[in-house]
Amino acid sequence: MTMTAQSCDSGTGPVGLRWETVCRLDRLQPGRGVAALLGGRQVALFRLPGAFGDEGADDVNSVVYAIDNIDPCSGAAVLSRGIVGDRNGQPVVASPIYKQAFSLLTGRCLDDPAQEVEVHKVRVVDGWIQVELS
């Protein structure tokens, strides 16, 4: 998985793996995203109302996904503001700038194979969302 030039630059982040607590699950509206700032890195979190497998689904009906927030096609930090949905059953977010769809499972851009964003592991502990950062 390649990383965008900008995420490489954010050298202030912690080294090694670590679960970082972000916010309470109920801050996220099902079907929409938010941005989080995690050690200088921008992450987009999305809460979907269940049904797409069960990774990370602590809350009864929710799944939370995390990918990098910067849209590699425009360079703007906006993926958290895209519309979420599915392409052939695969959960995706559409960049609000030029509308390319990114898989929430793999980070791959389904409209431009040259583009990709990093995917982060998410879990919900006692109603708190945590993201694993590398």
Partner: peptide
């Protein structure tokens, strides 16, 4: 309610998104 999740980013923030976000 749920309508908020359907809106394009422009409608969602009631403003026009520019190229730098």
């Amino acid at each position: 309610g749920e309508q908020a999740t359907l809106q394009d980013t422009n409608d969602h923030f009631l403003a026009n998104l520019q190229r730098n976000g």
